[in-house]
Amino acid sequence: MTALLVDVFLVSMMVVIAILVLYTRRLFAAIVLTGAYSLISAAMFVNLDAVDVAFTEAAVGAGISTVLLLAAMARLPAEEKKGTSLIIAPLAVCLIAGVLLIVAVMALPPFGDPTSVVHQHVAPRYLIESDVKLHIPNVVTTVLASYRGFDTLGETIVVFAAGLGVFLLLSTGRRKKNDGKGDKDEK
């Protein structure tokens, strides 16, 4: 019961922050509010016993993303461009996606139900084996690094590719220097 009350409190805080983000006209305030939003969702993950997810959310969502958004904000002009007045199409997309998500949520099994399908396949084996056979108490780590090692390798490569992409897009300095040298050699 207490957990449910805390959840309701946290979710209503998140709704309030989301509305504030939409209504504030200052980018700095909006970015700091998204950081607060991430921190509250991290608290919610702790309440749902997903400590690893909460850890990542607090570090990435509240920490690094806020810093990166602030760094990006410093490059933006202070004046906002006048937007187009046609908002019907985006509104329709948002509403349809929202309705579909709510319908999908209603089809999910109840939260924490041990008899639901996803908990019947390989999860029982992982839960037993990780502690007894491999002596690794944190099942999240065993699943992430060993049972699902291929997925995590893919994730690591995605992180690497994302870093490479940002580096190639934003680092204009070195290319310019090389172009200058090339020109001199040609002449």
């Binding site: 690094i64 990166l68 760094a71 990006a72 940002v166 580096f167 897009l169 934003l170 680092s171 300095g173």
Partner: peptide, 8 residues
């Protein structure tokens, strides 16, 4: 390197 790219 993301921070370097954004900040620089």
């Amino acid at each position: 390197s993301l921070y370097y790219a954004f900040a620089g």
